[in-house]
Design a protein around this nucleic acid. Structure first.
Length: 260
DNA sequence: ATGGTTGTTAAACAA
C-alpha cells in the first residue's frame, strides 16, 4: 500500500502534474495540501477518470486539503474538537482499513508573531485529537505539510535557520510531543542520502541550489511503522515546468505483514 | 543582497 503526501500550492495550476504523477506512481492514497479552491470547483471528475475517489475540504484562495484514493474514504472528518478554525487544514478518513489524517499545519510566518502562537496552539489541539485517534485505530497514519523541519539534518543551512520559523525549538518540541504519542517518522525508519528535502523556496533558485527543508512528513503508528517497507522523496515533479514549491513524499506499507 | 518568486485576486497577502 503506497501512501503519499504533496503540497501542490494550487490544485488548479497543478492538476496536470498530479494526474501524471498518479498515473506514474499508482499510490493507493495521495494526501494533498494547499489545493486553494472551494469545494464546488474541485475537479472530482478528473480523478474519477483516472480511477480514483476523492474527498476534499476547501476554501477560497488559501489552504484546502484533499484525499485521493483507490478505495472509498469512510468516517470522514473535516474538523476536530476544541479547535475553532475556519481554515481548511484537516481531513481525516478510513481508507482500506487504515485511519488517515491529512494535515496542512499552520505556517506561523515568524517566530513570536500572532500566527506563530496560533501554530503552537493549533498543534496542541491536533495532538490531543491524534491521541484519541491512536486509541481507536491501531493502523494510523498522519501526513502532510507539517511546516516544521524535525531536526537540523532536515535543513540545508541550520545556522541560517537557527530558531527561525519552521525550525524553532518550540515548534520542534510540539512535533516531538506529537511523535511521543507513538508515531514514527517513516522517512527516518530507513537509511537515507543526506541533504534530502521536500520543499524549496521559489526565490533565489532554491531548488537548483538545493536550499531546502524537509517539512513534509509521513508519521505512522507503531503497528503501521512495522509494516513500512520504504519511504522516499520524489523530486521528479519539482523539476517540471511550473512546479509546486513542494515535492511528493511517499511511503510503502506491506499491509499483509503480520505484526511481530 | 531583510533580497528573491509564485498563487490568488484585484494591491495586498500568504507562503
Amino acid at each position: 500500500m503506497k501512501i503519499a503526501t504533496w503540497n501542490v500550492n494550487s490544485l488548479n495550476v497543478r492538476l496536470g502534474h498530479v494526474l501524471d504523477w498518479l498515473g506514474a506512481e499508482q499510490p493507493e492514497v495521495l494526501a494533498l495540501q494547499e489545493i486553494k479552491m472551494t469545494d464546488d470547483r474541485f475537479p472530482l471528475e478528473a480523478f474519477h477518470e483516472a480511477g480514483y475517489e476523492a474527498i476534499f475540504s476547501g476554501q477560497k484562495t488559501y489552504n484546502g486539503v484533499a484525499l485521493i484514493s483507490r478505495a472509498p474514504a469512510r468516517e470522514v472528518i473535516r474538523d476536530i474538537a476544541d479547535l475553532e478554525d475556519p481554515a481548511r487544514r484537516i481531513l481525516g478518513a478510513t481508507i482500506d482499513g487504515v485511519r488517515i489524517l491529512d494535515l496542512y499545519v499552520v505556517n506561523g510566518q515568524e517566530v513570536g508573531s500572532e500566527k506563530y502562537a496560533h501554530k503552537l496552539h493549533w498543534l496542541d489541539k491536533v495532538t490531543a485529537h491524534i491521541g484519541g485517534e491512536l486509541q481507536q485505530h491501531e493502523c494510523f497514519v498522519v501526513l502532510g505539510d507539517f511546516n516544521i523541519a524535525p531536526e537540523d539534518r532536515d535543513v540545508h543551512d541550520p545556522a541560517a535557520w537557527h530558531e527561525r520559523i519552521l525550525c524553532s525549538t518550540p515548534e520542534r518540541e510540539a512535533l516531538n510531543r506529537l511523535r511521543a504519542l507513538g508515531l514514527e517518522d517513516c522517512y527516518r525508519l530507513f537509511d537515507q542520502d543526506p541533504e534530502q528535502y521536500s520543499w524549496w523556496d521559489y526565490r533565489a533558485a532554491g531548488f537548483r541550489r538545493n536550499l531546502g527543508l524537509r517539512i513534509d512528513l509521513i508519521l505512522a503508528s507503531t503497528a503501521m511503522a512495522r509494516k513500512c517497507t520504504r519511504c522516499w522523496i520524489d523530486k521528479a515533479p519539482r523539476k517540471l515546468e511550473r512546479p509546486s514549491d513542494h515535492t511528493p513524499v511517499v511511503a510503502e506499507f506491506d499491509v499483509a505483514r503480520t505484526p511481530s
